[in-house]
């Protein structure tokens, strides 16, 4: 969740595609790749795959923490229906907030990425460092800083109040009673802020790969700046946009730090519920079921989204 993760995703973007006819490295045997793989893969199998299965098993337990949990075939599936009946608003809110944050990120990131990739000239690498620099500080400390900025008697809220913008926001049900902190807007703002570089860097990478003369060619062929953006730049940056939206949406949907620090219990997200169920209520089956549903929901959404956005051959 830090600047580093963002760096990695941008690196991944730039990996060139290679043909299938890569020659086997000279002087190695058939067993070599498996020997190299096995320690890392074993680690992932034991501490990622097995826990995911364990999560499923735990969600089907019956009993309680005090009396002990037991698993009876075929499992206590009622936990799922109970959990979903009770917590569907939090699920909905999570996806709504994450979706809003993703849209805001896109709106903010596209001009910035465009500027860095196509207009910044010699400043390019400096600007790239500036994009990730704020994220060198701890996620939590940054989010806490927003608490200061958006404080009820702070300069930002007072300015917005005097401009009657908070009235407008309240009318839109984004804020309440002339304040921003502890409202849905604050949570979405925090999510937008925290995942912005995940959107900027992939879009930057795909715009940077684009041949700048294509825009000139479009203008030469009677496309105004706006038409060139719509017909050439935007379609060519789609792979970056798709990657960016996924990298923003997935962590945002599971996040509970922003809802906890910038919101209230009234605007809690599914992450808050899972964490509460584990540590406050200690209802492990319900917590596991919610967690498992979140995973399935995100996987199916991602799958659906990639299918829709990705089937069209993108360059």
């Amino acid at each position: 969740m830090s600047g580093g993760a963002v760096l990695a995703t941008s690196v991944e973007q730039q990996e060139p595609r290679r043909g299938p006819d890569l020659p086997r490295a000279v002087g190695t045997s058939r067993a070599t790749p498996y020997l190299l793989l096995s320690p890392g893969m074993l680690w992932l199998a034991v501490f990622f795959v097995v826990p995911t299965l364990m999560l499923l098993v735990t969600s089907l337990y019956t009993g309680s923490l005090d009396q002990g949990y037991t698993f009876e075939f075929p499992g206590h599936w009622a936990t799922y229906s109970n959990a979903l009946t009770e917590y569907w608003p939090q699920f909905l809110r999570s996806f709504l907030f994450a979706g809003l944050a993703t849209v805001f990120c896109l709106v903010l990131a596209y001009p910035l990425a465009y500027f860095i990739a196509l207009r910044s000239g010699a400043w390019k690498s400096t600007l790239l460092v500036l994009v990730i620099a704020p994220f060198f500080t701890s996620f939590l400390i940054r989010t806490l800083a927003w608490k200061t900025i958006l404080a009820d008697d702070g300069a930002v809220v007072r300015t917005l109040n005097s401009l009657h913008i908070t009235d407008l926001l309240t009318w839109l049900h984004l804020t309440e009673a002339d304040r921003i902190l502890n409202t849905p807007l604050a949570v979405v703002l925090g999510l937008t802020y925290n995942f912005l570089p995940f959107m900027v860097l992939p879009i930057y990478a795909s715009l940077d790969r684009m041949d700048g003369r294509l825009v000139e060619a479009a203008q030469d062929l009677y496309a105004s700046s706006w038409a060139a953006l719509r017909k050439v730049t935007w379609p060519l940056s789609l792979p970056g946009v798709v990657a960016g939206t996924l990298l923003t949406f997935i962590p945002a949907a599971g996040d509970y730090i922003n809802a906890e620090l910038l919101g209230t219990a009234k605007v809690s997200m599914i992450g808050n519920v899972i964490q509460d169920q584990f540590f406050v209520v200690t209802d492990y089956p319900t917590a596991s079921a919610l967690s498992f549903v979140l995973m399935l929901a995100i996987i199916s959404m991602v799958f659906f989204y990639v299918r829709r956005a990705g089937t069209e051959e993108l360059v």
Partner: peptide
């Protein structure tokens, strides 16, 4: 398959990863 295995943890929300591991350790 190995590529997918590497990709999966990056595409999983942290809450899910954290709670899965907790489920394992508790179990």
């Amino acid at each position: 398959g190995a590529n997918l295995m590497v990709f999966m943890p990056m595409a999983t929300p942290e809450v899910v990863m954290g709670s899965s591991l907790l489920a394992l350790f508790v179990g």
